[in-house]
Simulated scan of single mutants.
Amino acid sequence: MELPDIWFIAIAVLWTGYFVLEGFDFGVGILLPLVGRDDTDRRVMINAIGPVWDGNEVWLITAAGAMFAAFPAWYASAFSGFYLPLLIVLLALIARGVAFEYRGKGDTDRWRAWWDRAIVFGSTAPAVLWGVFFANLVRGVPMDADGIVTAGIADLLTPYALLGGLTTLSLFTLHGAVFLTLKTSGPVRVRARAAALRSAAVAVPAGAVFLAWTQYSYGAAWTLPVAAAAAAALAAGALLAANGREGWSFTATAVAIGAATATLFGSLYPAVLPSTTGATFDLTVDNASSSPYTLTVLSWVAVVFLPLVMAYQAWSYWVFRKRVTREQIAPAPAYGGQEPAHAGAGEGPTAPGGAADGGTPPAARPTGD
């Protein structure tokens, strides 16, 4: 196995990590108005992902950076050819991040409602568009000999790509709902379980059809068991959620996302971006990769720093492993740090720094429940 092949696998692993971890973040954001009946419920949901959401996005930065360094031609063609949808993803992620930080800076329902809408948009748009993006990568796009993608928006919105968007949207919603049942208590947990069952009614058939379509049209012999494992894990996650087996259900949905991503990358290989204009214009791991020296330097950097990053992120998940409850949520301060007049006695203090809900992460810390 040559270095370009190793780096293709490494990039697939990075995208898998991003979808597994950021997937439940997206799901929580999508479910914000559905599971959160009042402001306290919504703050429970936001604080459930408060300590980890920005760390999860590092996987996206690392995956895109690895594509740029290891396969510059792939990066250039894909990110320029899909410029509009990827721009929407970028704007959505910006709006979502800003909303997490600014939502708690004002003490009015109208203020928070607008930021809640930004969170929903910032979670829903990427959840759909990543599926459309990767479905088009596997299917291929019109591309000339210079690696310039000539596809228009209509060329990207094929039935297969739209099914890919529906699959990622429903799968991330299910993943996020299961995460909430695992990470919260009280009414949010009860409603999240109901949301998991409703989203599973879409995710399981959509995922099964999308995986079958991918395998039949683009898959290799070795991707068949991987696709089957993804479909089985998805169905198992839904059944486990229905039976209240929250930890195993979350593990199953994570495996389903990982196996589905492996199926997509396995179906793509050895190409990195097929051309529907002609196979001679395909970008492959060989003709799109950087020089051997560049890949060698990247490999040493990855060997040194990637374990440190993964260890730190694992440690942060361990530290913030406890459930989030309504009782841990202090009244949100008004803009400028003033406590609102209706602040109730006996509610916990606001914890400093690091949370999503405008700097109010009491529920994000281990609480000993």
Rank of each mutant, 00 (worst) to 15 (best):
A118H: 11
D146H: 14
A78E: 07
D38Q: 05
F71L: 08
D107Y: 12
V141D: 07
N56F: 03
T62R: 00
F68A: 09
P72D: 11
P85N: 09
A63C: 08
A145L: 05
L137K: 00
L87P: 03
S123W: 11
Y102F: 15
T150L: 13
F121Y: 14
A66N: 05
R96L: 02
A78C: 05
W114L: 14
W115Y: 15
W114Y: 15
A113I: 00
I119C: 08
G65K: 06
V141E: 07
G97C: 10
E57I: 02
A118R: 11
W53R: 07
F68I: 06
P85I: 08
F82N: 08
N136A: 13
S123Q: 06
R37I: 01
L137G: 01
P85F: 11
R103A: 13
F121T: 12
F82M: 15
R112M: 11
L90Q: 04
A135N: 04
A78L: 13
G140E: 05
I119M: 08
W74I: 02
R112I: 03
V132F: 10
N136W: 09
L93I: 10
F71C: 09
L91D: 00
L84E: 09
A76Y: 11
F71G: 09
E57H: 15
L90R: 06
D107R: 08
P51L: 10
G106Q: 07
A125I: 08
F71N: 08
G106R: 05
P85K: 09
D146E: 15
I119Y: 07
G97Y: 12
